[in-house]
């Protein structure tokens, strides 16, 4: 059982506060993705869990054991690094078996586990090679196999796919997800790639400026972002926002349209809708098309509504020319509202 509890963890580098009071629980065998732009503190948090960085304050517990005062080797973790960190002076076999040899396991056990994990990652034929003779994708596989061979409670991954080309990344994404699900380890995966996060995670923690803004399932993060930052960060293209002024109770004026919205008498709100939740209709926002991008599967139209940037994803069969005025209506159950003061979602 390897449930991870992060309690009030904070980290400062000199005057810079990299992490603010992080609290997060990751369930046994859960695949947790830490998602955020560079500099948001996600790697720092991962390195604190690994023991490569020391938290300024706070505690980390794995499987009911406090580990933040232990050295990395005693934490029951293994880690996959962004640049793979395959040891250049050892063969692939010795790389994968490195941790097992450190544990002084008998030779036949080392061989058995190296061959099994190499098989899992489809690199059995590379065992005699050296790092210099491997491609980036193969090194990546060695790094993952080396981490898996340890049979750790927790596997930590720091942007493991970001150095691979797009096609390989997609392939490895699916493969990693399968292998990790089978290994039944708890996994924490750091990435800035939201597609990776959405496709692999059981749960995503969206991080921003050293804080976890939202930790929820991928679909929840996508559909019900808890804050404006999440709404603007997740989704490609991201959510559209328009300012809303209160009209009657529960009615809001958005770009000249009356919308049903939350009651409660706020002075102003932000109306938010995903580009793919808009469709052409007889009534709705008047949008002036600026840029039309046919993307094959659909048509991405960047327009202007009430002087604001506004994107719509429309059917690719539609013929839209720049300068044309479109009438776009939002799908009512997909509309979200945010408080401009707190930037949090309003129900």
């Amino acid at each position: 059982m390897a449930r991870i509890e992060i309690k009030n963890v904070a980290k400062t580098f000199g005057a810079y506060q990299a992490l603010h009071d992080i609290n997060l629980t990751i369930e046994d065998q859960e695949f947790m993705v830490l998602l955020g732009a560079s500099g948001c503190g996600k790697s720092t948090l991962l390195r604190i869990i690994a023991g490569l960085e020391t938290a300024t304050t706070g505690e980390v517990w794995i499987g009911g054991r406090r580990i933040d005062n232990l050295s990395p080797k005693d934490r029951g973790i293994s880690m996959v690094f962004q640049n793979y960190a395959v040891f250049p002076h050892l063969s692939v076999f010795e790389n994968i078996g490195f941790g097992l040899r450190m544990q002084k396991l008998p030779n036949d056990e080392v061989t058995r586990r190296v061959e099994r994990t190499a098989g899992l990652m489809h690199i059995e034929q590379l065992l005699k090679r050296y790092s210099g003779e491997l491609s980036g994708g193969q090194r990546q596989r060695v790094a993952v196999a080396r981490a898996l061979a340890m049979e750790p409670d927790v596997i930590l991954m720091d942007e493991p796919l970001s150095n691979l080309d797009a096609l390989l990344r997609m392939e490895m994404r699916a493969e990693l997800k399968g292998v990790l699900a089978e290994s039944k380890t708890t996994a924490i995966y750091v990435t800035h790639d939201q597609v990776e996060a959405m496709s692999m995670a059981d749960r995503i923690s969206v991080m921003h400026q050293g804080e976890i803004v939202q930790a929820a399932s991928p679909i929840e993060v996508y559909r019900n972002p808890s804050a404006e930052f999440v709404a603007g960060f997740i989704g490609n293209p991201p959510m559209n926002f328009l300012p809303a002024k209160p009209a009657d109770s529960g009615k809001w004026a958005v770009a000249g349209q009356m919308m049903d919205g939350p009651g409660g008498g706020s002075a102003s709100l932000k109306f938010a809708i995903r580009p793919e939740d808009l469709r052409l209709a007889d009534t709705g926002f008047k949008a002036v098309a600026k840029v039309v991008e046919p993307l094959g599967a659909h048509l991405l139209v960047t327009c202007e509504v009430d002087g604001q940037l506004f994107r719509a994803v429309l059917d690719s069969d539609l013929k839209v020319k720049p300068g044309e005025v479109l009438t776009l209506t939002p799908q009512p159950d997909r509309v979200r509202w945010f408080d401009p003061q707190t930037t949090l979602a309003v129900a």
Partner: peptide, 13 residues
């Protein structure tokens, strides 16, 4: 690279 040493630490060194 520092990563090589860090990898060794996580692997029991």
């Amino acid at each position: 690279p520092m990563e090589l040493e860090e990898a060794a630490w996580t692997l029991g060194c």
